[in-house]
């Protein structure tokens, strides 16, 4: 039974779901279907953060051009350039059993590719969600609908997974930023 979270809410993942080791993080959105203007290309990324809250190198940053790290601990299943269709538009797979001990937090973000040039922002994106699915049985564990509070943001941190004692927890974030993927990288301590 899936749990719907609201912004800021935290929830146990592995503690309340014994045996859960591998999750599919499904991200979805709709873009307004209008003629003219540019196509929307939204990109999901994952930032693997150390104890100081920073990513330290390329291996800590998963995106469309670096789709796997730490031997499959975090995996990006591929770039979807249109956001077409039902269900998840992009997916990130996390295998908690493979995440190295020095990674204590994983941030999942979505950015609008080329937003300034295409004059796009999250105000033009609707029905954004993130859901966590147990990879072993395909059951949806939780879901966070991001609602309609974004407007001029071009990058949004959807959620974070973080270690709490010996378990992984999930926090619904839904915080938006101006700027793009490069700004997010700098925010997380990466040089770009």
């Amino acid at each position: 039974m899936s749990i719907n979270l609201s912004k800021g809410q935290r929830i146990d993942l592995t503690k309340t779901n014994p045996g859960l080791t591998k999750v599919v993080v499904g991200l979805g959105w709709d873009t307004n279907k209008y003629a003219g203007g540019s196509e929307f290309d939204l990109d999901a990324s994952a930032f693997l953060l150390h104890a100081d809250g920073k990513a330290k190198g390329a291996e800590d940053f998963i995106f469309y051009n670096n789709r796997e790290t730490y031997g499959g601990a975090v995996l990006h299943t591929g770039d979807n350039r249109t956001g077409e269709g039902e269900g998840d538009d992009e997916q990130v797979v996390i295998d908690f059993s493979k995440v190295p001990a020095h990674i204590v937090r994983i941030g999942i973000t979505v950015t609008i590719h080329d937003a300034p040039v295409r004059q796009q922002n999250f105000g033009q994106v609707s029905s954004a969600f993130v859901r966590v699915v147990n990879e072993a049985n395909n059951n949806e564990v939780l879901r966070f609908d991001l609602g309609e509070e974004f407007s001029t943001e071009t990058a949004v941190v959807f959620c974070e997974f973080y270690r709490h004692e010996n378990d992984w927890k999930f926090q619904a974030i839904g915080s938006g930023f101006a700027g793009g993927l490069a700004d997010l990288c700098r925010n997380y301590g990466l040089e770009v």
């Binding site: 004059q119 796009q120 922002n121 999250f122 105000g123 033009q124 309609e148 509070e149 407007s151 001029t152």
Partner: peptide, 11 residues
């Protein structure tokens, strides 16, 4: 005071 919006913004 007027709130000035840009495309995509909600008020």
């Amino acid at each position: 005071m007027t709130v000035a919006l840009v495309k995509g913004q909600k008020a």
